[in-house]
Structure formats: structure tokens, C-alpha cells
Amino acid sequence: MTALWLLDLCLVAVILAVALSAVAARDLFAATVFFVAYGLLIALAWVRLDAVDVALAEAAIGAGLTGVLLLGVTARVHMEARTPGPGRGMRLAIGAGCAAVSVALAAAVLSLPVPAPSLVPAVEAAIPATGLGNPVTAVLLAFRGYDTLLETLVLLLALLGVWSLAPDRLWGGRPGLRHRARPEGTLAWLGRLLPPIGLLVGVYVFWIGSDQPGGAFQAGTILAAVWLLAIMAGLSDAPPVRSLALRLVLVAGPVVFLGIGTAGLFVAGAFLGYPPAAAKTLIVTVEAALTLSIAATLALLVAGAPERAP
């Protein structure tokens, strides 16, 4: 117990130090590297909070994809901010204000009600009807299906927003620059070595998600990373965004989810409801389609606006 407590204290201290460094670092590149380290450390914090599903998502998205996204843009935006920041006095005042926000939140944490309110009994009572063993997947795909459906639509909207920043003549073209790696270099080697392993892990994380930590979002992120790696290693090129096949993959998840959800109106009596006898099959079908769409959407979000004519 004491050893774990000590580990928690060290982890928290390092997390806060890295977060402070990410804000205080002099240049953008250093700040970004601190932020990636922060994402990995926070994933450990999630394990300590018994939230392994969240830890997987955080490691894959928070540290992985966000890191690729930010490091990529750091390499392209070299200019420093020209307008000076607030002066020393103002910074002190802002710091005091932000500290006050933290103190108020800390006070709220210390005065949380005992016993803690919990939805665990409600989830445990309802989960047999879904046939799933992982309560987080049951919440995402069944109990709060609305959230997940809308989330996948938000992802598509964000992607449309990114694409719409392309100039007219590049509309529908390929995102990002064509990547080339030295054929005998490390990147090309990793680009050949990792994708098969990544594919296997991605499919496993999707399949195991019904009963163990994992699921469509974590698996989709891993598959997106595999695809991005192949693109960055120059082994495959980003597809033109006007490609019909690509667009079908992008909407497959939400369409299957909406279709099965609407059918729920007639066979289960509620939108996004599942008939108990077929619940698990239907949920896994929705998850499979979502995994594909999430992988494609996240990879294209990171790849950015079209920059080469179709």
C-alpha cells in the first residue's frame, strides 16, 4: 500500500512538472515534446484510477495521434508570436486568478459527498441484456448510444471543417505533402515492420473490447496510426479526399449505427435499442463499422487539408 502511495505521489509530481514545462518552455518544439511525455504519464494515471479503457484511449490518442499532429505542424509553422505577451505584473495577476480556479476545484474535490454517487449498480443490473462483459463498451454502444452516435458525427464535421480550408483548386485533392523516406532508413524499416503488428493489435483490441478493456475507439486509433505510419514512411500515399471509396468508409460507421438504431424503433421499441436476443451481434457489427470509420476519420484529421491537386 505504502509503495503504491509513493508511486502515486511520484507520478503526480512528474505529471505536474511536465505540464508546467509544456506551458513554460521557451520554444514550441520543446513544449510539444513535453506535451507528448505528459500524454504518456497521464495514461499511467488512468491505470492507477482503475480506468484501463481510458488509459488505452489516452495513450493512443492523447500521446500518439495528438503528438504526431502537433509535431507535424511544429515542423511547418516556424514563426514566433510577434505581439508581446502580458507584462510581469499582468502575468502575476493572471497566475493568481488561475491558482484561485485550481483552489476552488480542489476545495470541491475535498468536499465531495460520502458515500459517492454511483451508476455501477444500474450498469450491473442492465448489462446482462447486452451480452457484453465490458461495462464501458456497454455504456458507449448501448446505454449512452446517443453520445457515441453524435460523437462520430462530430468527428466527420471536424473533418469537413479541415477539408474546407483547402483552396478551391485543391478541393478533393490529397492531404499533406508526399512523404519520402530513405529506403534503407529507420523510418522505412519501421514502416515495414510495424504495420502487421499494429493491424493485429488493432483487430485484437476491437474484438476483445466486448469483454475486456478495448473497443472501437482504441482500435480505430491504433489502425489510424498504422495507416499514418505507412504514409509517413512513403510506402503508401494519402488518398485524394474526393475518392468515393474513401468517403464510403468514412460514413460506414455512422450509417450502420443509425440503420441498426432506427431498426431498434421497430424490433426493440426504442431508437438505438437492441432486441436482447441479438444485442451482442448487433453491437459488435456496429463496433466493426465504427472501428473502420474512426480509423479513416482520425488518420485524415491528422493528415490535414488537401494540399495537392486531385
Binding site: 484511449a57 490518442i61 495521434l65 450498469v123 464501458v136 458507449l140 453520445d147 468527428l155 471536424a158 474512426i294
Partner: peptide
């Protein structure tokens, strides 16, 4: 698990907003 699921949703949406 309910907050856990909502946090995963939040992490994914944060990535979309960041992109």
C-alpha cells in the same frame, strides 16, 4: 463505467477539435 465512457468520448472529440 459511465464517466469512463464519457471521458473516452471527450478525448476523441478533443483530438478532433485540436486537428
Amino acid at each position: 463505467p459511465v464517466p469512463h465512457a464519457m471521458i473516452i468520448t471527450g478525448i476523441v472529440v478533443a483530438l478532433a477539435a485540436t486537428a
